[in-house]
């Protein structure tokens, strides 16, 4: 197990954003974290990435406790945040170089990995443009390429397709599945757009800060008596937690 979350609870004042959330991600698998707006997905990501600490519970990434050994855990993560996190004054290549350096990559390794990541996402010809001049979809690709440049073992994606048009979303989804399957990288993909994650190996449904269902897409369809994952998702959100 590469990611284990046990009994995670986070309060904002009187509001309980996460309530005893537990989930697991297996090596090489794509796990979808489905939740409506306000379900607690982003809060969970903030805790998973060590930005903030939980009020209770435990996060273990490759056996490293996020509370006590965050650096060891972070070194093996690739992260795409919901809110774009590019330096718009830097070019795509400079953004990737910055991230590679931040992760301690040597110059030679950085050059090879950045070239490969730019090529994989079809960004080579736009690498020297300031990111400010790139479209929203291309910027997202740059963020994805950046997250993969350090060869992470687990990719955390927080609504990576938000704000993208249908074509860009489709391309991004295809690129993520292709890149991570090729490299054997595990993915935890938070979204409310069911069509993005229909090929996921496992699905965790979060509603009102609680995990209301988890399993394979087939098992969710069976347990909810639904024909599609979208119907199952809506049904699970209707049920009181």
């Amino acid at each position: 197990m590469i990611l284990e979350v046990e009994g995670l609870t986070k309060n904002y004042g009187k509001l309980r954003a996460l309530d005893r959330v537990s989930l697991r991600v297996e090596a090489g698998s794509v796990t979808a974290l489905l939740g409506m707006n306000g379900a607690g997905k982003t809060t969970l990501f903030q805790l998973l990435t060590g930005l903030f600490v939980a009020d209770a519970g435990r996060i273990s990434v490759f056996g490293h406790d996020m509370r006590h050994r965050p650096q060891a855990a972070l070194a093996r993560l690739g992260i795409v945040f919901q809110q774009p996190a590019l330096d718009l004054d830097l070019t795509a290549r400079q953004n990737l170089n910055f991230h590679a350096r931040l992760h301690g990559m040597t110059r030679a390794a950085m050059r090879t990995a950045v070239d490969a990541a730019l090529a994989q996402f079809g960004l080579a010809d736009q690498a020297t443009k300031p990111t400010r001049e790139l479209s929203g979809g291309t910027r997202r690709k740059v963020e994805l390429a950046r997250a993969l440049v350090t060869s992470p073992d687990l990719l955390l994606l927080d609504e990576p397709s938000s704000g993208l048009d249908t074509q860009a979303r489709h391309d991004l989804t295809r690129d993520v599945f292709q890149a991570t399957r090729e490299r054997g990288i595990a993915v935890l993909w938070a979204t409310h757009i069911v069509s993005d994650i229909e090929d996921a190996d496992a699905v965790v449904v979060l509603a009102r800060g609680q995990v209301v269902a988890c399993g394979t897409p087939a098992s969710l369809l069976a347990s909810t008596g639904s024909d599609t994952l979208e119907q199952a998702f809506l049904a699970l959100n209707r049920k009181p937690a």
Binding site: T49, G50, L51, Q71, A72, L74, A75, L77, I79, F81, Q83, P84, A85, L86, D87, L88, H99, L102, H103, G104
Partner: peptide
């Protein structure tokens, strides 16, 4: 505000 600080704060250094 631009979200870039998250990237810095999730670097694998203290």
């Amino acid at each position: 505000e631009a979200g870039f600080l998250r990237l810095l704060l999730t670097a694998p250094v203290p």
